[in-house]
């Protein structure tokens, strides 16, 4: 897979480390009543999407930036690559 890095251009996916579903941005509220349940879901439960999903990739062998990819888990097609910092700002 070639990942089109927003700053560095096309890079081989082997330069990256995979972290998983971008849902990890949504850390539960530590003051919530249902704290244990929320963290259990956050830590262990995944949608495991069949089709397009947003996911976190870390450019470990490169500029060490975190990226958010929109990638199809059935075809491996990548339709969008964003810097995680920008993604987070937009999706606040």
């Amino acid at each position: 897979m070639i990942i089109n890095h927003p700053l560095l251009g096309p890079r081989d996916s082997s330069e990256f480390t995979y972290r998983g579903d971008a849902i990890l941005f949504n850390r539960p509220d530590p003051n919530s009543e249902s704290l244990l349940e929320d963290y259990y879901e956050y830590q262990y439960i995944r949608d495991n999407t069949h089709g397009f999903m947003k996911e976190l990739w870390f450019h470990e062998q490169g500029d060490r930036s975190w990226l958010v990819l929109t990638r199809n888990t059935v075809t491996h097609e990548i339709i969008r690559v964003e810097l995680a910092s920008e993604y987070k700002r937009e999706n606040k």
Binding site: G20, D21, Y44, I45, R46, D47, N48, H50, T73
Partner: peptide, 18 residues
């Protein structure tokens, strides 16, 4: 392999990634 996909039809989410 397809556990999440099938169990999703029963409204369940699993501690699994494919």
């Amino acid at each position: 392999g397809n556990s999440s996909k099938v169990m999703n039809m029963a409204g369940m989410r699993l501690p699994i990634e494919s």
